[in-house]
Design a protein around this nucleic acid. Structure first.
Lengths: 334, 334
DNA sequence: TAGTTTTTTGAAAACGTTTATATTTTTCGA
DNA sequence: TCGAAAAATATAAACGTTTTCAAAAAACTA
């Protein structure tokens, strides 16, 4: 009992396959009687069209590809859920493709499986990007600013986020602020730092080099960085900052644990902030003051821009979404 | 500049398309010289095969479909990440399809897009399942026990988990234990309760009806349930349980907040446990004692069983994976 | 060198659809 | 009732591949 095709339906209904196709696709040209008969036969035989055949012929797939290298982090469920929701609402299927194999990824994107693609956290060369553009493949980046004829992006304003956190702490009276960075060269980490620096510069303040710690965006690395920083500061009798701005929430947690371990109370003795507003931020003690990015909005906008591209618009402008300062308990006035 | 096809390569290389196909697919029959020439041309023209064409012809897609209705919950990133990892390792692509539209889902599964599918948290009728089976579509369920000729499942042993938590608390000396249930009829919630009951029954103990609370697997609902339970118990002068087994972690957190609000310290005055081991469990204060399910193992097994089915094995036995008790701070001896 | 075998290449069919065009059937007017 | 117009249906091509089988080219053999 192989899978029933349009041919089987045609034979069973005593009609040609083109008529079946028209009946099924509601092309208003087939006689009501025959159409009814065909539909009945199709139902009885439990016919379900071969999507591959359809797609090959039509050239359109009504599906969006979401490509990413990994799915870790809480950011993800939220993003994917929203993406799925908005694409479904627009009548498009969403396919998530997870891989770090550049060649595989390009092959899949270029395999005519998708009407357009969303790209996140991928290693793709400029040359690859050009190929995509030359093949008129609609692309939206979720992790970097980029625009071309067939590509655009929807990202968060990490600079502004850093600036906002900076001003918040400065308004609370902090003057000595340390920054716990992510991996060297990570865009978000650097933008956040740049924003923070700008806020400080506006008040003629600066972050000394010794206040720049390496937290690698990880709890343990941040813990160790803060621990050794404090200890060596004590040893040298130098002053400890009144506030730590961590590059993300998880390193903020590492920082708080280190501070607690060294006998400092957060926020009484020292303030700590993060970025991202992960689940834990709210439940940790003290609850973490941080910046929340509008993930659902990013998903909605991405789908919207991508579909504009799919429908023929060109040079669609990129969007930069502002984050929101979530004030909790981990920072207070000095 | 339309996308280059195998025809373009053939023309440019002065050869037929069948030869190009053979050269590209490394069928060892084309003369080294021509092969080299073809490969060069393909590279120069940046040829990338149309996957739809390939798939239509070959009937195989080398991809696995993962179908689910929603992506919420921390369980997800972990599962997806592991799934992606293991499918890639097996040489299969993973496509995640998120939808609640039963008709859409069936259409997509039956559309010959996948060599096999993973199903989670979907509303699919028995009739649909029969159709899939009659079409020889390999299926693995991740949320319910099911086996048929072409289907099997990989699930967690919620009964055993409840039993283990029960014994743990009983060994700590607890005798009065309450259970905070999920939605009425939710399989996991009921299994966990059944396991707990068995552990108690083995010591001739039972859970009185008044100790069964409705937490809906949500923080707030659990909070409210526990709050009103405590208050009415106080009012009536009845005894309060020494331990609360919450149906999942998030309701355990709701319970702990309610207890704290009413002046009870966890775990000094009363013990609380959860199920799932979500991120927050470790960071909450007190850190939650709970059961962790081996998600990566589930992913690995699912892919493995699915591929057995894909490769022609029949009636593959279902797997039931045991959870692991993670002892932290929220429960202690009495 | 001619015949034979082996290697290499090409033509054509096939996968399951949709759609343009051709053909048949029906309807309608005179 | 016949012919023309309109409606319905069928035939065939096409989408981009792979694969079977036939044909051509190359390599041997005697």
């Amino acid at each position: 009992m192989a899978k029933v095709t349009i041919k089987d339906v045609a034979r069973e209904a005593g009609v040609s396959i083109s008529t079946v196709s028209k009946a099924l696709n509601d092309v208003n040209v087939v006689k009501p009687d025959t159409k009814k008969r065909i539909l009945e036969v199709a139902q009885r035989l439990e016919y379900s069209p071969n999507l591959i055949g359809q797609r090959l012929k039509s050239g359109s797939t009504q599906t969006i590809g979401f490509f990413t290298s990994s799915v870790t982090g809480p950011y993800f469920s939220l993003l994917m859920d929203a993406l799925a929701h908005f694409s479904e609402k627009s009548g498009y299927g969403l396919n998530v493709y997870i891989s770090s194999d550049r060649h595989q990824i390009m092959n899949t994107i270029r395999g005519n499986l998708f009407d357009g693609v969303l790209l996140f956290d991928l290693v793709i060369s400029d040359q690859d990007l050009e190929i995509l553009n030359s093949e008129k493949m609609p692309v939206v980046f979720l992790d970097r600013k980029y625009t071309s004829e067939y590509a655009t992006s929807v990202i968060f304003d990490s600079f502004q986020a850093g600036y906002d956190v900076g001003n918040y702490l400065l308004n609370l009276g902090h003057r000595k602020i340390a920054y716990i960075a992510g991996f060297e060269g990570v865009y978000d980490s650097e933008q956040r730092l740049a924003g923070l620096r700008k806020a400080m510069a506006e008040r003629s303040l600066a972050i000394p080099a010794s206040y720049l710690l390496q937290g690698l965006f990880e709890e343990e690395a941040a813990y160790n960085a803060v621990l050794s920083f404090i200890r060596s500061a004590r040893l040298q009798g130098t002053e400890i900052p009144t506030a730590f701005v961590a590059g993300n929430d998880i390193s903020a947690i590492g920082a708080m644990k280190a501070l607690k371990h060294e006998g400092y109370n957060v926020p009484e003795d020292v303030s700590v902030t993060g970025f991202d507003d992960i689940d834990i931020a709210e439940y940790f003690n003290p609850a973490l003051t941080t910046i929340r990015n509008p993930i659902a909005a990013q998903a909605r906008q991405s789908i919207q821009l991508l579909l504009q591209l799919v429908k023929g618009e060109r040079n669609v402008a990129a969007k930069v979404l502002p984050g929101e300062l979530i004030i909790r308990k981990s920072a207070r006035n000095i």
